[in-house]
Nucleic acid binder design. Structure first.
Length: 749
RNA sequence: GCCGACGUAGCUCAACGGUAGAGCACAGCUUUCGUAAAGCUGAGGUUGUGGGUUCAAAUCCCACCGUCGGCUCCA
């Protein structure tokens, strides 16, 4: 076989011709010794397909190539480094804890983790020892070496090692051969791991690393599987980069909406009220109200009608919608109401309990009959009158203190009994508004909007400030339309979401089209209609013209959806705006309208919430602006700060003029110095601070300072009012930069 | 719900077996001041709750409640 010559295209467009078997390292050496030293891995592209590859593995064919180096902090380069560091950490842990079984250790966007199965609980105290061990491995500068094995051979080898996780991993891996990476060169002696690679050249290339965090993680993300210990770490090529990274994390914490929410008195969550139940403080309420008014104005323009509905609904309503029993885990306990008929029974049993006697059987039987409780439901077998009283109370639905009673749970789960549910969603109520009147196709679309508060029993460990709560208000609306109207309505909904994001300067978001998982029982409804709805979502997302990803299993239980997802200060993703196509609930509720053919037709429903929820949106917004929210949203828009008693009178006048103009203004005429007054106003992130001294009083001007404390200069009071109102009116994100700009139009400031 | 860490004054933290202390905030007084924290004085806590160990518990142990970081979940 004659040896082939490979044509390698470099990033600068030059090409190299190398003998077959050439590696990325060969290429790097050709270019220069410095590059060869700094190189960590290669990245080649053939036919538009890009792969990262070990430095010392032969390039498969003609390709264009990019050399990843230690001085390059690109995601690709760091990815290889972190994956390699995960191997080093795994080795360290195995050495310190020989009983540890390795499971899976991928790189992450900002680090890596390794899942391990170990009975002994790891604690952060172990980090130092793990790091010390890792340091040793790094110092030894062991090369990462790869070897391949046929699948059969590898499976035999792994089976012999008695690590079921690696066997599982291997079974799920693709290809006829499996690869292993040795941290070192001595096969059978040095640490090795089943791994696709690629890796950096040697452990010495790991410049800086840190073991950071511990958590439990279920094997393969399955809560029924074994709980593993996940150890997180991160790595960089340079110590400085690690330091900066850790510093950034510290800085990001200062933007945390929970921290700023307290500083600015925006909201409060009180243990005595309940987990995940947000109390909006006066300042936070202003932000929320402004946002609601903003969207209400838009909705009016777009032909929505606002409605109000109660916070609870009958269980039967949610049995129809499918919420009961399918989503019971996420619901607050049902509200059980007093059955008047049962009161005499409860009273009698209470007397027995208080008198510490057993009830008379005949009398009890008679009262049970009167109570209209099925004999079969009644706990005759309970011999204890206290217990019997408690159960009778439950059966009579008088209170719910004892609601753990399995009989009750079973009773309700099996469809019996009338009670109420705190609404987990607004749709059933809106559906009933729609269904309360006959509709002609001429009426459609009907668009019903409500700031509807819903309650969901989120797992305690999931709660998070404002972003994950148990009671929240959706800026909800449901559109009932003909199938033909769906594309246009969807497009309008998406544009509304985008308008809101644009207005608030949220540019970093991703769009996800959530589809059903055909293998899951989480989704209900007709297959064909789902297909149509999913296609409608794809089409609408395309029309919107932003990149989006399609994700299976992310749909709502009744239909597919398009979500707008934003990251918080710690990089966690939160779904904000959502638009959902629902072919299912109209069916379940038997909704219809009369078409032009005088026949009844089934409408399609669109659920949409551009903010998602007021709580989550405001939480994210606080972090987005680090508390320095735009003027139109600011709880306090202007602070008037007097310099001394001599300027208090004019300060009061300024305050009054601004207040009369509808501007949210606060006056600080306390006998403090101007420095501290400014400091206080800045701490509250007030957008404009007006310093009022004798000079201003004499001239009728105000001395304008921005939220950063920078003095912008003085301007006539009337002019400041005008500019302020303009900035508020236009919901401008831009601030005054100099007082001269005050006289200009809103756009120029 | 799971794993780990943590709960001390309104906030941020100290004290880590010998019955709690600071800064900020708050109140009073002094000061009337020109742009990033004035001074003095005062008030404020049965150390999340309940048990236990101990002569003695904020401190050690257990349970519960809550918070935080992950996991899982998220209509």
């Amino acid at each position: 076989m004659e040896s082939k010559v490979l044509k390698i295209t470099l990033p600068d467009g030059n090409t190299l011709e190398l003998a077959e078997g050439a590696t990325t390292l060969t290429v790097a050496e050709q270019i220069g010794p410095g590059l060869a030293r700094a190189a960590v891995a290669g990245r080649y592209t053939i036919d538009g397909q890009t792969e990262t590859i070990d430095l010392n593995r032969p390039l498969p064919d003609d390709c264009s190539i990019e050399i990843l180096t230690k001085s390059d902090d690109s995601a690709d380069s760091l990815y290889v480094l972190r994956h390699s560091t995960a191997h080093v950490m795994a080795e360290a842990i195995c050495k310190l804890y020989p009983a540890a079984q390795l499971v899976y250790g991928p790189p992450l966007e900002d680090g890596f983790y390794y899942d391990i199965d170990l009975d002994e609980s790891l604690t952060p105290d172990a980090f130092e020892r793990i790091e010390a061990e890792m340091k040793r491995i790094v110092k030894e500068d062991r090369p990462f070496s790869r070897y391949d094995m046929s699948r059969d051979e590898a499976m035999t080898k792994l089976a012999g090692e008695k690590n079921r996780y690696k066997v599982d991993n291997a079974e799920r891996a693709e290809g006829d051969t499996l690869s292993f990476y040795i941290t070192g060169e001595r096969r059978g002696e040095d640490f090795e791991d089943l791994c696709r690679g690629p890796h950096i050249r040697s452990t010495g290339q790991i410049g800086a690393f840190k073991v950071r965090q511990l958590s439990a993680a279920y094997y393969r993300g399955d809560a029924n599987e074994k709980s593993l210990q996940r150890v997180y770490g991160t790595a960089f090529y340079k110590k400085k980069a690690l330091k900066e990274h850790l510093h950034r994390l510290e800085e990001a914490k200062k933007r945390d909406h929970r921290v700023i929410g307290r500083q600015l008195d925006l909201f409060h969550i009180d243990e005595a009220v309940g987990q995940g139940l947000v109390l909006w403080m006066p300042a936070g309420s202003i932000v929320r109200k402004e946002l609601q008014d903003f969207i209400s104005d838009e909705l009016r323009k777009q032909g929505y009608q606002e409605v109000f509905t109660p916070h609870i609904g009958k269980l039967d309503l949610y049995r129809t919608s499918g919420h009961v029993p399918y989503y019971e885990d996420s619901q607050f306990p049902h509200l059980l109401v007093v059955r008047d008929h049962a009161r005499p029974l409860v009273k009698y049993l209470r007397e027995c309990r208080d008198g510490n006697t057993l009830p008379d059987a005949d009398r009890e039987r008679e009262l049970v009959r009167q109570a209209n409780i099925l004999e079969a439901e009644y706990p005759w077998e309970e011999k204890n009158s206290v217990r019997r009283y408690a159960i009778a109370r439950e059966l009579s639905m008088e209170g719910t203190e004892q609601c753990s009673c399995a009989q009750i749970a079973h009773h309700y789960a099996s469809g019996g009994g009338q009670g109420f549910l705190l609404k987990p969603m607004n749709c059933p109520h809106h559906i009933k508004i729609f269904a309360s009147r006959p509709h002609s196709y001429r009426d459609l679309p009907v668009r019903l909007a409500e700031f509807g508060t819903v309650y969901r029993w989120e797992q305690s460990g999931e709660l998070n400030g404002m972003t994950r709560v148990r009671g929240f208000t959706q800026d909800d609306a449901h559109l009932f339309c003909t199938p033909e109207q769906v594309p246009e309505e969807l497009a309008n909904c998406l544009h509304l979401v985008r308008l809101i994001f644009t207005t608030l300067g949220i540019t970093e978001y991703r769009v996800r089209v959530g589809l059903r998982d055909r293998d899951s029982d989480k989704f209900m409804g007709d297959e064909a209609k789902w297909d149509m709805a999913e296609q409608a979502c794809r089409d609408a997302a395309k029309v919107l013209g932003v990149p989006f990803s399609e994700e299976v299993g992310e749909g709502a239980f009744y239909g597919p959806k398009i979500d707008f997802i934003v990251k918080d200060c710690l990089g966690r993703e939160w779904q904000l705006g959502t638009v959902q196509v629902d072919p299912t609930l109209p069916e379940r509720f038997g909704l219809n309208y009369v078409g032009s053919d005088n026949q009844e037709h089934r409408p399609v429903m669109i659920h949409r919430a551009p903010f998602g929820s007021m709580e989550r949106f405001v939480g994210i917004l606080i972090e987005h602006f680090a508390g320095a929210i735009p003027l139109w949203l600011s709880p306090v828009q202007v602070a008037v700060l007097t310099i001394s008693e001599k300027s208090v009178e004019f300060g009061r006048k300024v305050h009054r003029v601004l207040a009369d103009a509808g501007i949210r203004v606060e006056l600080d005429d306390s006998d403090e110095r101007i420095g501290p007054k400014k400091h206080d106003a800045r701490a509250k992130k007030v957008p404009y601070l007006l310093v009022i001294g004798e000079r201003e009083a004499a001239e009728g001007t105000v001395n304008v300072n921005n939220a950063e404390g920078k003095m912008l200069g003085s301007v006539a009071l009337e002019e400041f009012v005008r500019t302020c109102l303009d900035e508020i009116e236009t919901k401008s994100m831009r601030k005054l930069e100099s007082p001269d700009a005050c006289s200009g139009s809103g756009d120029s400031v």
